[in-house]
Computed example of a mutant assay.
Amino acid sequence: CSEENVYFLCKKLISIGVADTVGVDLFVVFISNEEKKVPLWHQKASNSIDGLVVWDYHVICIQSKQKQGNDIDLVWDLDTTLPFPFLLNQYIPEAIRPLSFGHSMYSRLFRVVHAPIFLRSFASDRSHMKDPSGNWISSPPVYDPIVAEDGTTNNLNEYIQMRSKDARSLEESINDVHSSKYGAVLSETMLEEFFSLIRQRRISPKTT
């Protein structure tokens, strides 16, 4: 239930003052692809020395902030064995390892959603945690399912589903991430440059 864990992580970072008061510096990042097979390294769930796990999808938070006068990007990955949080420019070569599989079915896509929009819009009824007969595959969280502000009860698939052709230019992606409910889809080679541009521009989010 990594999406719900990251949802509450964002709320926690805001409430304890680690993030901006409304989460302007936070971005929720869904990692998946058309085949629902995304390899990541240094994962707690792994049984291998290098920590390799092939997820159907994974969710992390990236914080783009200023610290002691320097702009930095931090990755908050609740499932990693790497330091928590970890610098994005170190997390990428360690955990993502871009193009390790070339242009194959394992190439990853990243849906980046601005946290203020995500916290208003995300909803999950946890139906993905049940088998075809409606039985729980694993025990669900004890708290109530997350419902969006507009009353939507489930839109998890819209965040997870992504195709290579959904990735747009960096310029378009920066606009999308501040205005679209479902953010922007990036290829794995665009991720670090995208956040570099976000930091440079310091674009204020749209509140509509």
Rank of each mutant, 00 (worst) to 15 (best):
I117D: 01
L87T: 00
L186V: 01
T153F: 13
K12S: 15
K11P: 03
H103T: 15
G51K: 01
S133H: 13
A148C: 13
L88G: 08
R108Q: 12
R120N: 12
N70S: 11
S179T: 13
L186R: 01
S2M: 14
I16W: 04
E158T: 03
N157Q: 15
D77M: 07
S104G: 15
V6G: 08
R111E: 13
T189R: 12
F110P: 02
D50F: 07
E192P: 02
I72N: 05
K67Y: 12
Y106H: 07
I117M: 11
A184V: 03
T152A: 08
S32E: 07
T80K: 06
K67Q: 12
I62H: 00
L74W: 10
P39V: 02
N155V: 09
V113G: 05
F101A: 05
I14A: 05
R199G: 15
L109V: 00
V177Y: 03
D125I: 00
R202N: 15
K12I: 11
A115V: 07
L78D: 14
Y7E: 01
D176M: 11
L99Y: 15
V6F: 09
V185F: 00
I160C: 15
P85T: 00
I31E: 02
I60H: 04
R108E: 02
V112R: 06
G183A: 01
L156P: 03
R111Y: 11
L170D: 04
K165V: 09
G151F: 05
S32G: 15
C10Y: 05
K36H: 13
M162I: 05
C10S: 08
L119C: 03
N70A: 15
K65M: 15
P93W: 10
S139R: 09
G183I: 01
S204N: 11
E34A: 12
N47Y: 04
S180C: 14
S15Y: 02
E193T: 13
S104D: 15
N5K: 01
T189D: 13
P85C: 08
E3P: 10
F84I: 10
